[in-house]
Nucleic acid binder design. Structure first.
Length: 261
DNA sequence: CGAACGACCTGTTCGC
DNA sequence: TGCGAACAGGTCGTTC
């Protein structure tokens, strides 16, 4: 569920709430997540985002790395009211004066502690400078649908199903086109629309199309800006013809066959 | 190497 | 109202 804008929303809110604070303990309640590492006394130096990964950097250089997958959520609350935690609580990070609760009904989310100096390659940040040349280069031998290619996390870190549909609609590119046949000019448009849409979605604190909530339990606002995602049969805001739904790469894909070429 | 598909889980919605 | 099927924001491993 959470895509780049939702994860970035959490990163910014976590920065406000927990940066510089000391950890009392990390409690894990789902065996799938593995044993809870001992984090007692560690201080939180910073919060980073790599694609859809949230990284909590600790004062000994180790990194608590979290991926929310489909249904993972984080909520901040006062430790005082801890008798009734939400359903599907999978872990609780206790701090000096509050706690962060990890909730995940489907149990796809992951939580790992990485040791210092083991950072992978530095990924591009789609919020800042999408690089059309890099996109076209990566698409060279890819015959798969452009929409499926946009979900390749090595090329588009953080891109997810909702925003892939919206970016291709705004760029006027048919999601079924083979990725390798998208032109240089179209990659430039896609990069521009990607940056615009993702930044707007961050300002909206994400898309609450069903049940996404931010760190404080509030819904996002970007669902009011959706033009095609989830809007089968409704008029395309640009040309008025009906939005269609197809399946690409096993995922629902919404688009306008009239203005996406 | 690239691509298709099932698996991982559970909750919600839809059709009969 | 009840019940089963379909579907859901994401990735990974296996197979072709």
């Amino acid at each position: 569920m959470p895509e780049l804008p939702e994860v970035e929303t959490l990163r910014r809110q976590l920065f406000q709430e927990i940066r510089g604070k000391r950890i009392r303990t990390l409690a894990v309640y789902d065996a799938k997540l593995g044993p809870a590492p001992n984090l007692e006394g560690r201080k939180i130096n910073s919060i980073r985002r790599q694609g859809k990964f949230l990284e909590i950097v600790l004062d000994d250089g180790s990194v608590l790395r979290l991926h929310l997958r489909m249904t993972g959520r984080l909520f901040r609350c006062d430790v005082a009211e801890d008798t009734n935690v939400p359903a599907h609580t999978r872990f609780r990070l206790f701090l000096e004066d509050c706690e962060i609760i990890g909730v995940d009904p489907r149990r796809f989310a992951t939580l790992t502690l990485e040791q210092p100096n083991r950072h992978g390659p530095n990924l591009p940040d789609l919020l800042k400078n999408p690089d059309p040349s890099a996109f076209q280069q990566a698409a060279r031998k890819r015959r798969l649908a452009a929409k499926v290619f946009l979900l390749d996390q090595a090329v588009f870190p953080g891109m997810g199903n909702i925003y892939a549909c919206e970016v291709l609609h705004s760029a006027g590119v048919d999601p079924r086109r083979p990725a390798s046949e998208v032109t240089r000019e179209e990659w430039e448009t896609i990069g521009r629309e990607m940056r615009r849409i993702l930044n707007l979605a961050v300002r909206c604190r994400g898309t609450s199309v069903s049940d996404w909530r931010d760190l404080h339990g509030n819904a996002g606002e970007f669902q009011h800006h959706l033009r095609v995602y989830g809007r089968e049969g409704m008029p395309c805001p640009r040309c008025g013809s009906g939005v269609e739904r197809i399946v690409l790469g096993g995922r629902g894909t919404w688009f306008c066959a009239t203005c996406q070429k």
